[in-house]
Design a protein around this nucleic acid. Structure first.
Length: 555
RNA sequence: GGCGGUGUAGCUCAGUCGGUUAGAGCACAGGCUUCAUAAGCCUGGUGUCACUGGUUCGAGUCCAGUCACCGCUACCA
């Protein structure tokens, strides 16, 4: 038994979730968690929205909404998207509403400060007297000092690609009101990442086993670690702790407070469960395995910055045990992009396509080692090949045959056939593997292939035994063969459960089982000695097409 | 500009420590079967492993360079 705290990257409450996000951080995490649960491990699955930051305030203002209303809308919409995919977190919260978040985030600030990891520094920034705020780079426009382009943004010139320092822009303007901003001095706190690296985190990163795609990325990063500002001049966010000099008008920078949400959401859940004020600690301290599911854009934060924060508090937090970062998932030759409208809206999408098919297709194409691609035609062919042709048809051919000829009851197993039937299906019809082993190694594509390969074993068994012929020539052998197939379908349903929870449940019910398949223990590999669990004569459910075939998509 | 990734069969992709005739699924073709969802089973691959050069007994794999595509890039001077 081990204990796992599993997190999925907090989605930013500023736009819809698309399949790229789902493939990167949410679906694999859900499969991982479901597998661990069936294996009897203690698991907590944490997620919620990241709700602070200037991008949110500006979008909210554009739409004439209060900040809290605006983020609440996305918080709800994201949750519905996840539900529509069968992705189920233990806790779903948001950084602006979680009752424990402010204190937890402020605690990090205070503890890091006590540890000597914060640097206080004064700098000059552009301040808009009209809007009464300091302007983020992206909200300053002006003339590029390199090429003279007049519409240069405060972070980058769209004409020549130069990185812009906003203080150097010619005739700067505020993007909101077009007035000219003035220079003002302001004080910010910086996280001393070089110190944290040299003290411990650098060594920890070097020694840690990372996925290959993660490893390449962070090794280079270590050489040139910056001090990072962790505060900003604005009012939407976590205020600095009481008693900090110069805290007025400043909040924690959104990247700093967001990952702390994993911890504050844990606290919120434990409080809701009434488990006492320290119950959250077992998920963040001691021998818990912390697993962060993220897209590759989040690697620096989750492999270096957040671990450095956890360490720097000296509160005995565990550091990540694994960060199975995925690459990017593209939609038919172009990035999933909200701004360009290249997006599939899950709400309408699921009116046409079954969510389980989508889960399956995404799993079989996850960007585990390299960027990967989602296509409608791929979804349809994968559905028809793996789910309809292989698994669904297997269930159908076995259960309909039994419904028609055996009164819908598990046929008898004749003892003289037992050893032969066991050997035939468990050894001679192909290799049976345990998909959980691949899941625990974060190889989800491979795990899905194992499930279909295991189903193929039963298709081959049926082909070789030909119960439709045996029924006339040797009815007892036919019964034994079909009994064997029923047992095997029971294993298949459990193997399917983490990937296809709903369909696995339907198959489970077709086998006449009354309980939830997801509540069953993980089956592992069937052993001839004791793998048969259905009694002869057991009443089966009503067979139906688990995965109806799909027509090819238009064009 | 910096950093990272990708380039392998018609398509989507595997390929661990460099090691025999480079693999899988899909698609396609032929055959078998008829319980089943036009499903199942069997058989079928002469790929410049992007290009050039190098290291090596041996390179898809390691090194250098070139080309193409993609991603990230901090309010840090």
């Amino acid at each position: 038994m081990a204990r796992y705290t599993v997190t999925s990257a907090l989605p930013y409450a500023n736009g819809p979730i698309h399949f790229g996000h789902v493939a990167g951080a949410y679906l694999p995490a859900d499969i991982f968690v479901r597998t661990l649960r069936m294996k009897g491990e203690e698991v907590l699955f944490v997620c919620g929205t990241d709700e602070h930051g200037v991008a949110i305030t500006l979008r909210a203002e554009e739409q004439g909404l209060a900040y809290d209303e605006y983020v609440a809308r996305w918080r709800q919409e994201h949750l519905e998207t996840f539900r529509s995919l069968g992705i189920e977190f233990d806790v779903w919260s948001g950084t602006s509403v979680c009752p424990d978040h402010t204190a937890t985030a402020q605690g990090f600030f205070t503890e890091l400060d006590h540890g000597g990891y914060l640097i206080r520094r004064e700098s000059e920034q552009l301040y808009c007297t009209h809007d009464e705020k300091f302007l983020a780079d992206r909200y300053v426009m002006g003339t590029c000092y390199v090429c003279g382009h007049e519409q240069a943004r405060g972070d980058e010139c769209p004409s020549c690609g130069t990185w812009i320092q906003p203080l150097k822009l010619g005739s700067p303007r505020c993007k909101i009101c077009s007035n000219e901003p003035e220079r003002r001095k302001t004080t910010h706190w910086y996280l001393d990442l070089p110190k944290l690296r040299d003290e411990y985190i650098g060594e920890w990163i070097e020694d840690h086993q990372w996925k290959p795609n993660v490893s390449a990325f962070i090794k280079n990063m270590l050489a040139d670690v910056p001090e990072r500002a962790i505060t900003r001049d604005m009012d939407w966010g976590v205020p600095l702790p009481e008693g900090v000099e110069g805290r007025e008008g400043k909040v924690l920078y959104v990247w700093f407070d967001a990952p702390i949400g994993y911890i504050s959401f844990t606290k919120e859940l434990m409080a809701r469960r009434g488990e006492g004020p320290d119950a959250w600690e077992k998920w963040w301290k001691g021998d818990t395995r912390l697993v962060h599911f993220i897209g590759k854009d989040n690697i620096p934060f989750h492999c270096m910055v957040f671990p450095a924060m956890l360490y720097g508090t000296h509160q005995d937090y565990v550091l990540p045990w694994a960060v199975p970062a995925n690459e990017f998932y593209n939609l038919e030759e172009g990035k999933f992009s909200t701004s360009e409208g290249r997006t599939i809206d899950p709400k309408t999408f699921f009116e046409t396509y079954d969510r389980e098919s989508v889960r399956w297709y995404i799993t079989t194409t996850l960007p585990e080692t390299a960027d990967a691609e989602f296509s409608l035609s791929g979804l349809v062919t994968t559905h028809n090949a793996d789910l309809a042709g292989n698994i669904g048809n297997l269930v159908s051919r076995v259960l309909k045959f039994i419904a028609k000829n055996y009164d819908g009851r598990v046929p008898d197993l004749f003892e003289e056939h037992r050893a032969e039937m066991d050997a035939e299906i468990l050894e001679h019809c192909g290799l049976i593997a345990d998909p959980a082993e691949a899941v625990l190694a974060f190889q989800f594509r491979s795990a899905a292939r194992i499930v279909t390969a295991n189903a193929s074993v039963a298709n081959l068994f049926m082909q070789r035994l030909e119960p439709w012929s045996l029924r006339k020539t040797d009815p007892e052998r036919a019964a034994s063969a079909l009994n064997t197939l029923c047992q095997y379908l029971g294993w298949l349903a459990r193997w399917m459960a983490p990937f296809l929870p709903e369909k696995a449940g339907q198959l489970w019910a077709m086998l006449g089982m009354q309980d939830e398949v997801t509540g069953r223990a993980w089956p592992g590999l069937p052993q001839a000695a004791d793998w048969r669990f259905l009694e002869p004569g057991h009443r089966l459910g009503t067979p139906a097409a688990l995965f109806p075939r799909l027509e090819a998509p238009p064009e």
